[in-house]
């Protein structure tokens, strides 16, 4: 008897591929500050232009990990699933699993990101690995996203981990 794994063969072909068209947008001070405040982070570099300039910056900074959410396109309520998550956009990484949990991130920061910067991101599927944990088999899915600013400089890279079971 053949036991079907959690990673279908055709999904393995997506490894190394872009998961969507590049996303691009201007990050405003207001949305960066809303993110910082929701995490009760009152860093003056995000809020106070004079403090940012005194620290050698041209204007206020964006909390660096906010990049991960700043470019997501606005979507209609009709695209929300029963669990509240949005239906997949772009190329779907089809797995034989029920749930996907956020498992953490690895960030590298190369340049500051400023309020008003136009950032473009590209996300690739980096790897899919089937593993066996104490609560059964799961898939460790890793994506790699590169963030580039309006001057063509790579400002950050992030590897995202999710656990699908």
């Amino acid at each position: 008897m053949t036991v079907e794994g959690l990673i279908p063969e055709e999904t393995k072909g997506l490894i190394g591929e872009l998961l969507s068209e590049p996303l691009s947008g201007v990050i405003t001070a207001k949305e960066a500050q809303r993110f910082a405040l929701a995490a009760d982070d009152l860093n003056p570099l995000y809020f106070d232009e004079e403090a940012a300039k005194a620290a050698g910056h041209r204007t206020t900074l964006v909390p660096p990990i906010f990049l991960a959410w700043s470019l997501a396109p606005a979507r209609p309520v009709s695209e929300v699933r029963e669990d509240g998550l949005y239906k997949s956009a772009g190329r779907r990484v089809a797995l034989n699993v029920k749930r996907v949990m956020f498992g953490g991130e690895d960030w590298e920061f190369f340049e500051p990101v400023y309020a008003g910067d136009r950032i473009t991101s590209e996300t690739r599927l980096k790897s899919l690995e089937e593993k066996h944990g104490s609560s059964g088999p799961f898939v460790l899915q890793m994506t790699e996203t590169t963030y580039t600013n309006q001057d063509g400089r790579v400002v950050a890279k992030a590897i995202g981990r999710s656990i699908a079971r």
């Binding site: 995490a39 005194a54 909390p63 660096p64 990990i65 991130e105």
Partner: peptide
């Protein structure tokens, strides 16, 4: 993750720079 970022960034101070965080 955002709290961890804040923890490290505040420790470094406004003159420090966080190069990597995981």
């Amino acid at each position: 993750g955002a709290w961890l970022s804040q923890y490290v960034t505040d420790w470094a101070g406004t003159g420090g720079r966080v190069r990597a965080l995981s």
